[in-house]
């Protein structure tokens, strides 16, 4: 399991900030950043009413399925997807090959504007992720998990 992703406070704040700026600049309802395995990482906008966990898992499944289609067609990947609803539209894009950026928007915005703003945000997000990946790969950081005991694990199941 050497390829686990680790998130730190500093980078998370930067990712949240990118989401907030994108949310504002694109007039979106909400912005989510999800990892390709379906874990929600950060969000901005009207997320209180959203089931972010389910949305993340389904979006990741959707992106994985689309990636499978791309492979069958000898494409590297389809970098973006757009779903048009009656009230809400969804723009999905892959960033830095390992993250998914989801923008939910309505008639207050447009696909063109969202696309434009996503491009800028994706570049910034890529930079943050590059730093994060380097940081989690460097072995110098202490880990709390080395200290987990069998008793700690057993205690989780003592209900």
């Amino acid at each position: 399991m050497g390829n686990q992703l680790v998130m730190y406070e500093e980078e998370l704040q930067q990712i949240v900030r990118i989401c907030e700026v994108l949310h504002k600049d694109s007039n979106a309802k909400a912005v989510l950043v999800i990892d390709k395995n379906g874990q929600a990482m950060a969000s901005a906008g009207e997320v209180e009413t959203l089931d972010v966990t389910s949305l993340s898992s389904l979006t990741a499944g959707n992106v994985a399925a689309t990636g499978g289609i791309a492979q069958l067609l000898s494409e590297k990947e389809f970098a973006g997807q757009f779903h048009e609803g009656e009230r809400t539209n969804v723009h999905i894009s892959i960033v830095a090959q390992r993250l998914i950026m989801v923008v939910l928007f309505d008639e207050r915005s447009s696909l063109g504007l969202v696309r434009l703003r996503v491009r800028k945000a994706a570049t910034e997000l890529t930079n943050v992720i590059d730093v994060l990946v380097k940081k989690s790969e460097s072995s110098s950081q202490p880990s709390v998990f080395a200290e987990i005991t069998d008793a700690d694990i057993d205690n989780l199941f003592n209900d």
Binding site: M1, Q4, V6, Q13
Partner: peptide
């Protein structure tokens, strides 16, 4: 791939 979030613990 486990995802460890030190920020939200």
């Amino acid at each position: 791939m486990s995802f460890i979030n030190y920020s939200s613990r």
